[in-house]
């Protein structure tokens, strides 16, 4: 699905106007979380969906970003906002090292290695108390009481991330990435240095995930290892966000992020207080069921299989199938 230019203008305008129209901290908070997941899901998608390296360890970069910001405040005595400058580059640097270790493995082996590295980082953050504060985590004061500055900052990061991925995928790099995903050996025999381009993909991907982490530290003002280095709540969620929206599509992970955040919140709040209380216990379960459903019936996600969905909806079957194309 390729969004026409006016679609994007409408999305940007709506996003900019949203907190001015809906003056509710609650909904703005939801949108900030969703935008954060847009960044994480999109960056995961660059590495996994476009380059074919399914990472189960994106929490590493998120955590590194978050701890960079946190440590700026607790250890260096400067504002945690410096983390927004440092978090991305440091996450990229760590990404390079991890890539150097893990990119010699392929397919499922790569996925497993990233889980292992992720767990090592989590445990290290728990145990290395003198640096990270261990399970006590890092607690800071929020800089702004209003949610507006955070909202616009998250929005800028999200659009920056999507735009950067869009540009990367239209450059030569993007074609190399997809060549590596489709057939690494064929790509290498055509002269693509697979290791180098996988690393470049990881550098961009980890940069934005680290940036998201640094933002999270500043926004939530509290982190601990189980939150930011979590395998299940960050690394795997990043994957599921990508899967639901559609891997290898530009708008898939952003859509998946909004679905994930709002589906979970709808259930967590028992349909915003309208439903019975026990509904709130279902929030992760419903998302899991949705994931199973999507993988079973829409293997390429909602955006990736959009033409298929539209064909089901309209009676003009077959007309749309001719124009079915993957990715944008």
């Amino acid at each position: 699905m390729k969004a026409p230019r006016w679609h994007i203008v409408v999305i940007v305008a709506a996003a900019l106007a949203f907190p001015l129209i809906v003056r509710s901290d609650y909904y703005v908070h939801m949108f900030i979380l969703a935008l954060l997941w847009v960044v994480i899901g999109s960056s995961w998608n660059l590495l996994a969906g476009y380059t074919g390296q399914v990472s189960f360890g994106h929490a590493i970069f998120f955590g590194i970003g978050a701890y960079t910001a946190g440590l700026c405040a607790t250890k260096l005595g400067i504002s945690a906002w410096w983390g927004m400058l440092l978090g991305g580059p440091i996450a990229s640097l760590i990404g390079l090292v991890i890539g150097w270790i893990c990119f010699r493995l392929r397919g499922p082996y790569f996925a497993l290695a990233t889980i292992a590295v992720g767990e090592i980082f989590r445990l290290a953050a728990v145990v290395w108390r003198s640096l990270t504060g261990g399970m006590q985590g890092i607690l800071l004061m929020q800089s702004f009481r209003s949610k507006l500055p955070y909202y616009y900052l998250a929005l800028a990061i999200a659009f920056g991330c999507i735009y950067a991925i869009h540009r990367v995928m239209r450059s030569k790099w993007g074609y190399y990435f997809i060549a590596i995903r489709e057939d690494q050996d064929a790509a290498e025999s055509m002269g693509v240095n697979a290791f180098r381009y996988k690393s470049l993909s990881l550098v961009v991907s980890s940069f934005f995930t680290g940036l998201a982490g640094a933002f999270y530290m500043n926004y939530m003002a509290f982190i601990d290892p189980e939150v930011v280095f979590s395998l299940h709540h960050i690394s795997i969620m990043a994957i599921l966000v990508g899967i639901i929206g559609g891997v290898g599509t530009l708008w898939g992970p952003p859509l998946g992020a909004f679905i994930m955040v709002f589906l979970q919140e709808t259930f967590r709040s028992s349909f915003f207080g309208l439903g019975p209380r026990w509904v709130s216990e279902l929030h992760v379960l419903v998302f899991g069921l949705l994931v199973i459903f999507v993988i079973l019936y829409m293997a390429n996600g909602i955006v990736g299989d959009w033409d298929k969905i539209r064909r089901l909806g309209s009676s003009k079957a077959g007309a749309a199938s001719a124009s079915a194309g993957k990715g944008s």
């Binding site: 996994a48 399914v54 996925a111 599921l240 891997v247 279902l282 199973i292 993988i295 079973l296 293997a299």
Partner: peptide, 30 residues
Amino acid sequence: PLIKVESILPENQVLMTVGIGMVLTELARL
């Protein structure tokens, strides 16, 4: 059923097991 489905990532079955694991955990929690 996933063996027959064409998808971008070959790891679809693995990701399905992630979904299954999540649902089992949440059912137990429920």
